[in-house]
Protein backbone atom coordinates (compact mmCIF):
# COMPACT_ATOMS: atom_id res chain seq x y z
CA UNK A 1 0.00 0.00 0.00
CA UNK A 2 1.48 3.30 -1.13
CA UNK A 3 -0.37 6.47 -0.37
CA UNK A 4 0.46 10.16 -0.62
CA UNK A 5 -1.76 12.92 0.69
CA UNK A 6 -1.68 16.62 -0.27
CA UNK A 7 2.01 16.37 -1.06
CA UNK A 8 3.78 19.71 -1.58
CA UNK A 9 7.39 20.41 -2.29
CA UNK A 10 9.45 23.54 -2.84
CA UNK A 11 13.13 23.96 -3.71
CA UNK A 12 13.39 27.64 -2.82
CA UNK A 13 10.36 28.28 -0.62
CA UNK A 14 8.68 30.43 -3.34
CA UNK A 15 7.65 28.10 -6.15
CA UNK A 16 5.67 25.19 -4.74
CA UNK A 17 4.98 21.90 -6.52
CA UNK A 18 1.62 20.42 -5.62
CA UNK A 19 1.18 16.76 -6.45
CA UNK A 20 -2.06 14.86 -6.84
CA UNK A 21 -2.70 12.19 -4.23
CA UNK A 22 -1.50 8.72 -5.08
CA UNK A 23 -3.20 5.61 -3.79
CA UNK A 24 -1.78 2.30 -4.86
CA UNK A 25 -3.02 -1.02 -3.53
CA UNK A 26 -0.72 -3.97 -2.90
CA UNK A 27 0.29 -5.71 -6.12
CA UNK A 28 -0.58 -2.74 -8.33
CA UNK A 29 1.82 -0.91 -10.65
CA UNK A 30 1.55 2.73 -11.58
CA UNK A 31 2.55 4.86 -14.51
CA UNK A 32 2.98 8.57 -13.80
CA UNK A 33 2.96 10.65 -16.98
CA UNK A 34 3.93 14.26 -17.30
CA UNK A 35 5.79 16.69 -19.52
CA UNK A 36 9.24 18.00 -18.82
CA UNK A 37 9.58 20.61 -16.09
CA UNK A 38 6.38 19.63 -14.34
CA UNK A 39 8.18 18.07 -11.38
CA UNK A 40 8.30 14.40 -12.32
CA UNK A 41 11.78 13.76 -10.92
CA UNK A 42 10.91 15.87 -7.90
CA UNK A 43 7.96 13.58 -7.17
CA UNK A 44 10.11 10.50 -7.63
CA UNK A 45 12.79 11.88 -5.30
CA UNK A 46 10.08 12.59 -2.72
CA UNK A 47 8.76 9.06 -3.02
CA UNK A 48 12.30 7.71 -2.65
CA UNK A 49 13.02 9.86 0.37
CA UNK A 50 15.84 11.67 -1.42
CA UNK A 51 13.91 14.91 -0.96
CA UNK A 52 11.77 15.81 2.02
CA UNK A 53 8.33 17.30 1.23
CA UNK A 54 7.30 20.72 2.46
CA UNK A 55 4.00 19.31 3.64
CA UNK A 56 1.80 16.27 3.22
CA UNK A 57 2.47 12.64 3.92
CA UNK A 58 4.02 9.72 2.05
CA UNK A 59 2.99 6.37 3.42
CA UNK A 60 4.86 3.39 2.06
CA UNK A 61 3.83 0.03 3.50
CA UNK A 62 2.46 1.81 6.54
CA UNK A 63 5.52 3.99 7.23
CA UNK A 64 5.22 7.72 6.80
CA UNK A 65 8.64 8.35 5.33
CA UNK A 66 8.12 12.13 5.33
CA UNK A 67 8.49 11.95 9.12
CA UNK A 68 11.67 9.85 9.04
CA UNK A 69 15.06 11.20 10.03
CA UNK A 70 17.73 11.16 7.36
CA UNK A 71 19.43 8.07 8.75
CA UNK A 72 16.10 6.25 9.01
CA UNK A 73 15.18 7.12 5.45
CA UNK A 74 18.61 6.03 4.14
CA UNK A 75 18.12 2.69 5.86
CA UNK A 76 14.51 2.34 4.70
CA UNK A 77 15.46 3.18 1.12
CA UNK A 78 18.34 0.72 1.11
CA UNK A 79 16.14 -2.10 2.31
CA UNK A 80 12.81 -1.40 0.59
CA UNK A 81 13.20 0.78 -2.48
CA UNK A 82 15.05 0.12 -5.73
CA UNK A 83 15.62 3.04 -8.07
CA UNK A 84 16.32 2.90 -11.81
CA UNK A 85 17.53 6.08 -13.39
CA UNK A 86 17.15 7.34 -16.95
CA UNK A 87 20.92 7.12 -17.37
CA UNK A 88 22.38 4.11 -15.57
CA UNK A 89 24.79 4.88 -12.72
CA UNK A 90 27.41 2.64 -11.19
CA UNK A 91 30.39 2.78 -8.91
CA UNK A 92 32.84 2.80 -11.78
CA UNK A 93 35.80 1.51 -9.81
CA UNK A 94 33.93 -1.74 -9.15
CA UNK A 95 33.02 -4.64 -11.43
CA UNK A 96 29.39 -5.60 -12.05
CA UNK A 97 29.64 -8.25 -9.33
CA UNK A 98 31.22 -5.84 -6.84
CA UNK A 99 28.56 -3.22 -7.57
CA UNK A 100 25.93 -5.77 -6.66
CA UNK A 101 27.89 -6.82 -3.56
CA UNK A 102 28.06 -3.18 -2.52
CA UNK A 103 24.30 -2.77 -3.02
CA UNK A 104 23.73 -5.85 -0.85
CA UNK A 105 26.11 -4.50 1.82
CA UNK A 106 24.43 -1.09 1.89
CA UNK A 107 20.94 -2.63 1.94
CA UNK A 108 22.04 -5.07 4.70
CA UNK A 109 20.87 -7.91 2.53
CA UNK A 110 22.41 -11.33 2.93
CA UNK A 111 20.13 -13.27 0.62
CA UNK A 112 20.14 -11.67 -2.82
CA UNK A 113 21.62 -14.07 -5.35
CA UNK A 114 23.88 -12.11 -7.68
CA UNK A 115 24.30 -14.83 -10.31
CA UNK A 116 20.62 -15.62 -10.44
CA UNK A 117 19.70 -11.96 -10.78
CA UNK A 118 22.22 -11.43 -13.56
CA UNK A 119 21.20 -14.55 -15.44
CA UNK A 120 17.51 -13.62 -15.25
CA UNK A 121 18.55 -10.38 -16.96
CA UNK A 122 20.69 -12.39 -19.44
CA UNK A 123 23.94 -10.62 -18.52
CA UNK A 124 25.62 -13.26 -16.37
CA UNK A 125 28.64 -13.26 -18.70
CA UNK A 126 29.30 -9.60 -17.79
CA UNK A 127 29.73 -10.38 -14.08
CA UNK A 128 33.43 -9.50 -13.93
CA UNK A 129 33.32 -6.57 -16.34
CA UNK A 130 33.71 -2.95 -15.33
CA UNK A 131 30.58 -0.88 -16.12
CA UNK A 132 32.50 1.30 -18.56
CA UNK A 133 33.21 -1.74 -20.75
CA UNK A 134 29.50 -2.49 -21.25
CA UNK A 135 27.16 -1.46 -24.06
CA UNK A 136 24.29 0.94 -23.36
CA UNK A 137 21.70 -1.87 -23.21
CA UNK A 138 23.89 -3.96 -20.92
CA UNK A 139 24.42 -0.98 -18.65
CA UNK A 140 20.68 -0.52 -18.28
CA UNK A 141 20.23 -4.19 -17.40
CA UNK A 142 22.99 -3.97 -14.80
CA UNK A 143 21.37 -0.90 -13.30
CA UNK A 144 18.10 -2.85 -13.09
CA UNK A 145 20.02 -5.67 -11.39
CA UNK A 146 21.42 -3.22 -8.83
CA UNK A 147 17.91 -1.85 -8.20
CA UNK A 148 16.35 -5.26 -7.61
CA UNK A 149 19.15 -7.24 -5.94
CA UNK A 150 17.86 -6.42 -2.47
CA UNK A 151 14.34 -7.59 -3.36
CA UNK A 152 12.79 -4.15 -2.78
CA UNK A 153 9.07 -3.94 -2.22
CA UNK A 154 8.92 -0.80 -4.34
CA UNK A 155 10.75 -0.17 -7.61
CA UNK A 156 10.90 3.41 -8.83
CA UNK A 157 11.92 4.01 -12.44
CA UNK A 158 12.72 7.50 -13.70
CA UNK A 159 12.35 7.83 -17.49
CA UNK A 160 13.68 4.33 -18.14
CA UNK A 161 12.74 4.33 -21.83
CA UNK A 162 12.96 7.88 -23.13
CA UNK A 163 16.12 7.34 -25.14
CA UNK A 164 15.15 3.93 -26.52
CA UNK A 165 13.55 2.91 -29.83
CA UNK A 166 10.17 1.17 -29.82
CA UNK A 167 11.39 -2.42 -29.62
CA UNK A 168 13.92 -1.70 -26.89
CA UNK A 169 11.30 0.34 -25.09
CA UNK A 170 8.99 -2.69 -25.02
CA UNK A 171 11.88 -4.89 -23.91
CA UNK A 172 12.77 -2.70 -20.95
CA UNK A 173 9.18 -2.29 -19.78
CA UNK A 174 8.67 -6.05 -19.99
CA UNK A 175 11.86 -6.69 -18.03
CA UNK A 176 10.80 -4.22 -15.36
CA UNK A 177 7.32 -5.71 -15.03
CA UNK A 178 8.67 -9.24 -15.10
CA UNK A 179 11.31 -8.55 -12.42
CA UNK A 180 8.82 -6.64 -10.27
CA UNK A 181 6.33 -9.49 -10.30
CA UNK A 182 9.10 -12.02 -9.70
CA UNK A 183 10.23 -10.14 -6.59
CA UNK A 184 6.66 -9.34 -5.53
CA UNK A 185 7.50 -5.66 -5.82
CA UNK A 186 5.31 -2.78 -6.88
CA UNK A 187 6.52 -0.73 -9.81
CA UNK A 188 6.11 3.00 -10.26
CA UNK A 189 7.38 4.40 -13.55
CA UNK A 190 7.62 8.13 -14.03
CA UNK A 191 7.98 9.27 -17.62
CA UNK A 192 6.90 11.60 -20.40
CA UNK A 193 6.97 8.62 -22.77
CA UNK A 194 3.31 7.97 -23.68
CA UNK A 195 4.28 4.72 -25.43
CA UNK A 196 4.20 3.13 -21.98
CA UNK A 197 0.47 3.78 -21.46
CA UNK A 198 -0.53 0.50 -23.01
CA UNK A 199 1.62 -1.45 -20.56
CA UNK A 200 -0.03 -0.14 -17.40
CA UNK A 201 -3.54 -0.49 -16.14
CA UNK A 202 -3.25 2.42 -13.74
CA UNK A 203 -1.79 5.74 -14.77
CA UNK A 204 -1.71 9.22 -13.38
CA UNK A 205 -1.31 12.40 -15.41
CA UNK A 206 0.62 15.19 -13.71
Amino acid sequence: MIETKSLKFSYDGKFVFEFPDIKLKDGENLLILGNSGIGKSTLLHNLAGILTPQSGSIKIFGNDISKFSEIEIDKFRGENIGIIFQRPHFVNSLTVKENLQLAKYLGKNLEGDIKETLSSLKILDKIDKKPNDLSQGEKQRVSIAIAIINSPKLILADEPTSSLDDSNCNNVVNILKEQASKKNAQLIVITHDSRLKKHFRTSLQL
Binding site: D74, H89, L106
Partner: peptide, 18 residues
Protein backbone atom coordinates in the same frame (compact mmCIF):
# COMPACT_ATOMS: atom_id res chain seq x y z
CA UNK B 1 34.05 12.40 -11.73
CA UNK B 2 32.37 10.30 -9.08
CA UNK B 3 29.38 12.43 -8.20
CA UNK B 4 26.96 9.95 -9.81
CA UNK B 5 28.76 7.04 -8.12
CA UNK B 6 28.37 8.81 -4.80
CA UNK B 7 24.72 9.66 -5.45
CA UNK B 8 24.08 6.03 -6.37
CA UNK B 9 25.64 4.86 -3.12
CA UNK B 10 23.31 7.19 -1.25
CA UNK B 11 20.23 5.93 -3.09
CA UNK B 12 21.29 2.36 -2.32
CA UNK B 13 21.05 3.19 1.37
CA UNK B 14 24.56 4.51 2.04
CA UNK B 15 24.61 7.28 4.63
CA UNK B 16 26.48 10.57 4.50
CA UNK B 17 28.74 9.24 7.24
CA UNK B 18 29.58 6.16 5.19
Amino acid sequence: ERKYDLALIRTLGGTRIQ
